[in-house]
Amino acid sequence: MLPAHGSLAIYPGTFDPFTPGHRDLVARARVLFDRVIVLLAMNADKQPTAEATVRAARVRDAMPAGWGNVEVDTWTGLTTAYCVRRGATVIVRGLRTAADLRHEYQLAAMNEQLGIQTVWLPSRPQLAATSSTVARAYRSAQSARPSLKE
C-alpha cells in the first residue's frame, strides 16, 4: 500500500518508556503515511519518570537514521488541537487487547467529532504483552534487586 500523497499522521502517547512495540508501530505507520509525528503528549493522569524533553530525546535515539519521514515532538493539550495546528487528519493508535479497543473506540469517536480520524494498528503478537507500565515495573524491580556480586 502506498501512502496517500501529503498525508500526515500523529502517533500520540506518553512513551514512558518507548518500547519495541511502539517502535514497531512507527515502522508500520511510516509506510502508510508520507509523514508520521511521534507526539509525546502530556497526560495529567500519568506521572512520567522523566521530563518530556528527555523522553523525546530517547524516542529520537530509538529511530533509525533512515526514517526521514518520522519526527518527534511534544505537546500539552488536546491531541486534536495539535493535529489541526500541524494539518494532520489522522491519529494512529496501537491495540494490544480488547480492553484497549473499548478505550480507544471512545477516544476515536470523540476525535472524529472534532474532524480527526483514527487508524488502529494491532500489536504484533510477540510484542503485545509488553506495555510501558510493564516495562517501568520491570526496570524498577531490576534497579531494586541486590547486586549478585556481593
Rank of each mutant, 00 (worst) to 15 (best):
H5D: 02
G6F: 07
G6Q: 10
I10P: 06
F15H: 03
F15C: 05
G21V: 02
R23M: 05
L25H: 10
A27M: 11
R28V: 09
V31W: 10
F33E: 04
D34V: 09
A44C: 00
Q47L: 12
Q47D: 07
T53D: 14
T53N: 13
T53W: 08
A56I: 04
A57I: 09
V59G: 14
R60C: 11
P64T: 05
W67H: 12
W67A: 14
G68D: 04
V72M: 04
W75Y: 13
T80E: 00
Y82L: 04
C83F: 08
C83I: 01
V84E: 13
R86K: 13
A88V: 02
T89A: 15
R93G: 04
G94E: 00
L95T: 03
R96C: 03
R102Y: 00
E104R: 10
L107H: 10
A109K: 13
M110A: 15
M110K: 05
N111S: 07
E112Q: 12
I116K: 03
Q117W: 09
V119H: 00
P122R: 11
A129T: 13
S131F: 03
S132P: 06
S132D: 05
R136G: 00
Y138T: 15
R139C: 03
S140I: 12
S147N: 13
L148T: 14
K149G: 11
K149T: 15
